[in-house]
Simulated assay, not measured.
Amino acid sequence: MGSGAGVPARPVMVGDRDQDVLGAAATSLACVGVLWGFAFDGELSAAGAAVVVADAPALLVELNARLVQFDAARGGL
């Protein structure tokens, strides 16, 4: 399903607090913020989340889009 011959797609952190976003950045990962956790209004964006999603279906769409981009960058493997 996706990135070809056992090669994992670029990892991404999924988090619900600014500490998650900052931890992801500290390890050179993008962070997708989710609004169904404990974050205060605007906290995830202010911390630098790559994108913030409202619900699980939107998270799935975002992760699938990232996988498609990764596959395209690898030549559609």
Rank of each mutant, 00 (worst) to 15 (best):
A50H: 13
A72S: 12
G75H: 06
G23W: 05
S3H: 12
D55Y: 01
G6M: 00
Q19Y: 07
L67Q: 10
L59K: 01
V53F: 01
A30G: 15
L22Q: 12
L29H: 13
A72G: 07
V34Y: 07
S28N: 12
P57T: 02
G2F: 04
L59I: 01
S28D: 15
A30E: 15
L60R: 00
S28G: 07
A72C: 07
V68W: 01
Q19V: 04
V52Y: 01
D16T: 04
D41G: 10
D71I: 05
P8M: 09
V34I: 11
G4A: 09
D41P: 15
A73S: 14
G33P: 09
L67G: 08
V68R: 03
G6N: 02
V21W: 08
D71C: 09
N64F: 03
F40H: 14
A24F: 02
C31H: 05
L35H: 09
C31P: 10
Q19R: 04
V52N: 03
A39K: 07
R17M: 13
A50P: 09
F38R: 13
P11I: 00
R66G: 04
P8I: 02
E43V: 00
D16Q: 04
A50F: 13
R74F: 06
G37F: 13
D20P: 09
A39G: 11
D41C: 10
M13N: 04
A24R: 00
R66P: 03
A73Q: 14
A58L: 02
A72V: 13
L77C: 05
L77Y: 00
A24W: 03
A9H: 04
V52G: 00
G42M: 09
G37E: 09
L44K: 09
A5V: 02
A73L: 12
G33M: 08
M13G: 03
A46I: 13
G23L: 08
D71R: 05
V21T: 06
V32R: 14
A26M: 06
V12I: 14
A25C: 07
G23K: 05
A30S: 15
N64S: 09
E62D: 04
G15M: 07
E62Q: 06
F38Y: 15
N64T: 05
R10T: 14
L60Q: 00
V61Q: 05
T27D: 10
A54N: 03
A50R: 13
D16K: 01
A5E: 11
A24Q: 03
G33C: 11
P57E: 06
G2L: 07
A25G: 12
S45N: 12
L77T: 06
D20M: 08
L22C: 03
D41M: 10
V12C: 15
D16P: 02
Q69F: 01
A39T: 05
G48W: 11
G33Y: 08
T27I: 14
A50K: 08
D71K: 00
A65G: 12
V7A: 13
V7T: 13
L63Q: 05
G4M: 03
